[in-house]
């Protein structure tokens, strides 16, 4: 039937409407009429004939192709209707959450005023939110995991994080031969010393930043 409708639309788009008077004024006394269904049937017959003549596809295969196309079309229609349905549900959920947020804001702002009025709406929103809770918590867990990974990587790059110290490798073995005293005059040598500015101001600032006294 879709084919008939399509043909009807195509005919409508490519034809003009004229009154009987207009036709008479054009000198036409009789007109021939044809139904859109017949046009569709003619087109289908013409296509089949053309396909038959081409010898590329048998009539049975052509029929199968037409039927498969129709099935495909119906399947797409069903999918699209399901999407529209899901969209409507998500919109309902969003509306419910908006209402819940508005109710909570009113509760916070008014110190309880208007809570009773908003309670009904909020409970409806809560029910909707409860349905979405597993999805939200899964998303939050994923986000937390991703953040932890990034923090760990950052800490390792900085060389200051617990992550670096947590992966401590023991290098003590490298110094097993250095414990013995080497002959040296180092103890009698004075090394160069420089005086530098104090660090009291730096420490004070850091303590303030850390919230200490």
């Amino acid at each position: 039937m879709e084919t008939v409708n399509d043909i009807r639309h195509a005919l409508s788009a490519r034809s003009r409407t004229a009154t009987l008077e207009q036709l008479a004024s054009e000198g036409r006394k009789r007109v021939r009429l044809i139904k859109a269904e017949h046009v569709a049937a003619m087109i289908a017959a013409a296509v089949h004939a053309a396909v038959d003549e081409s010898g590329l596809v048998s009539k049975e295969e052509a029929d199968k192709l037409v039927e498969r196309s129709r099935d495909e079309f119906r399947s797409l229609m069903r999918d699209r209707q399901a999407e529209v349905q899901r969209l409507a549900e998500v919109e309902d959920l969003l509306r419910a959450r908006d209402q819940e947020i508005a109710a909570l804001k009113a509760q916070l702002a008014g110190g309880g005023a208007g809570v009773a009025g908003a309670a009904g709406t909020a409970s409806a929103g809560t029910a909707a939110t409860a349905a979405a809770a597993p999805e939200i918590s899964a998303a939050l867990e994923k986000l937390a995991g991703s953040l932890n990974d990034r923090l760990e990587k950052l800490g390792r790059k900085m060389g200051i994080s617990a992550a670096v110290e947590g992966e401590e490798v023991k290098f003590d073995g490298l110094f097993k031969d250095t414990g013995k005293s080497l002959e040296s005059n180092m103890e009698n040598i004075q090394v160069k010393q420089k005086a530098g500015g104090g660090i009291a101001a730096n420490l004070e600032r850091l303590k303030k930043l850390k919230g200490g006294s």
């Binding site: 900085m158 060389g159 200051i160 670096v164 110290e165 992966e167 401590e168 490798v169 023991k170 290098f171 003590d172 490298l174 110094f175």
Partner: peptide, 27 residues
């Protein structure tokens, strides 16, 4: 790779009786 470098000096300084901690140079 700074792991070997850092670990080596950490062990060396710890052996001298300190509690060694690494900090990034530009930090």
């Amino acid at each position: 790779n700074v792991v070997y470098h850092q670990g080596l000096f950490e062990s060396m300084i710890n052996k001298m009786g300190f509690n060694a901690h690494a900090i990034n140079e530009a930090h």
